[in-house]
Design a binder for these strands. Structure first.
Lengths: 301, 301
DNA sequence: AACCTTTGTTCAAATTTTTTGAAATACTAG
DNA sequence: CTAGTATTTCAAAAAATTTGAACAAAGGTT
């Protein structure tokens, strides 16, 4: 089974067409004209079709020649892409990257960084997901994510690399229509207990779920994301602490009001975390960029 | 500028992967194993990456090897397609065929023939369009169509090849709710004049438009296609002659009723027409098939 | 454990393919 | 008509590929 087409023959055809003559093409390819004559003739013989009309001094492509030229272009382009792919692959860029954002963080700073990465056109497939409470560490442990942004609380066991990105300050805020909005001094535990507590559920799948922001309440409303919790509290459905950087707009628009609370809620450090000892270029790039991104936290690095 | 990838190397890689060993691949390719060792090693050196893990007896593809294999498959397939295209091109099949159907004909017989052609998987791109009144001849003249099916009336000037496919019989039919449905004898010109005439507009773009089925009327409703005209008349919007073979269902369902009319409407011969003196295999095939297709006309050939 | 089979590589010789340079022929422009 | 340019032919030179034999190591069977 003999094959007629070679990539070199397709390149020769392209060069002759582009430069207008065998002589010019030979010069550009650092060959002598008779080498091109040999290559084209071999292709013609093997395909069984004339690719050039040679009735004039300058050889002119036949319709069949044009057909080979057009389809040959796509093939040559694919061959270049293959060689480029291998270079990229060997260059250290990983084919896939899974990034998990803790729900306590704003989405837009992450998207901004993702946009920068996408505009670099790397052959890296990105997957973004959202985790809550201990879910970030869990996703790392469970190999559901390569990189976690915004993980809080105790560091998990095992070899994990971290970068602190800032402190999350929690404030007690309620809807202005909520009865507790009328309280003058610090709200007591007894007062809190009378209203449903709104809680973001831990998204962990393997590690034990963690309680976050739960105080004794007659009722608990669990939601998936911080965004949902903010909305529920704006609607006056319940009470709870909220990360201050997430409710700047709601406070200034009067949809939420700050109140003092007897039960303290200390700040939490938020981390960037990953497990790979030798991260690929993609992971390294994201770690660097996300570490210096403005997440609008306190004491940001 | 040296290129690493050759089509032969990609074929060798595919054979080794498919057959599981250098030895089996060599046998299938009618070469000796050391020839494959040479080819693979050359590719590896030129690409600068190991394509096989050779720590065991049988060589196993590396991740980079798999990448080259996958992308290489697409390239090899494209090369086969190119060689097939050339064979087809030289075989006489044209790359494109534009077929125009006159609106007076049913669509389904044409689609049936088109379906047969498509199932042959020829590298011929089909374009179907619809013309009305003198539009078929116009499309041929204007090089908007390679083949016209159902053209009627006077033959155009110039060199045109034709095949008669049958006679179109026109009948006067109205909606049963139309006042003229109540007429007993032949409908007079005066009676006709009282109701809107429904007319299919000539789709010609270059040749002078032709009047078809127009008699003196107070109002004229122009539509693009015969299908629209039939529907308008079923709705009782107006009157006119219709090709009998197009309204078989409507007549038997009682949506239209036949009536006698004082003004005669003679039958018309319908033609298959093309201009090329030396048609390619595609055009020839369609002429033959469409000529013997059952268009449900009178005196079909 | 011993023996046999299979796999892939190395190496140099043999074979094939490609490239070169010179000569010849023909087109094209001034 | 002349000079310049384009392409091909041809045989020699160079480069690339294939072959066959020998070898080492993995893998399977008894």
């Amino acid at each position: 089974m003999a094959y007629a087409v070679t990539l070199e023959a397709l390149r020769v055809l392209e060069a002759i067409h582009q430069l207008g003559s065998f002589a010019a093409a030979a010069e550009a390819l650092f060959k002598v004209p008779s080498a091109l004559t040999y290559t084209v003739k071999k292709l013609e013989d093997d395909l069984g079709v004339a690719l050039f009309d040679r009735s004039r001094q300058k050889a002119v492509l036949t319709p069949a020649g044009h057909l080979v030229l057009e389809q040959g272009r796509a093939i040559l382009a694919a061959a270049v892409r293959l060689e480029d792919s291998i270079k990229q692959f060997e260059s250290g860029w990983e084919p896939k990257l899974r990034i998990a954002r803790d729900t306590v963080l704003l989405e837009s700073p992450l998207m901004s960084v993702v946009g920068d990465f996408l505009s670099q056109n790397r052959p890296v497939e990105l997957t973004l997901s959202e985790e809550a409470v201990g879910g970030g560490w869990d996703a790392l442990q469970d190999d559901r994510a390569d990189l976690v942004i915004g993980a809080t609380g105790e560091l998990p066991k095992g070899n994990v690399h971290i970068r602190a990105i800032g402190e999350i300050e929690f404030v007690f805020a309620v809807s202005p229509t909520h009865p507790l909005a009328l309280t003058d001094g610090p709200i007591t535990a007894a007062q809190l207990r009378q209203y449903p507590a709104i809680v973001v559920a831990d998204s962990s799948k393997i590690l034990p779920a963690r309680s976050s922001g739960i105080f004794e309440s007659r009722q608990v409303l669990r939601v998936d994301t911080m965004r949902s919790k903010i909305q529920a509290q704006c609607l006056g459905l319940g009470v709870g602490y909220l990360p201050k950087h997430r409710i700047v707009d709601e406070l200034s628009a009067g949809r939420l009001v700050l109140r003092q609370c007897e039960l303290p809620r200390p700040n939490q450090m938020a981390y960037l975390a990953w497990r790979k000892d030798e991260p690929g270029l993609g992971l390294s790039w994201f770690v660097e960029q996300l570490a210096v991104q403005d997440w609008r936290l306190c004491h940001s690095r």
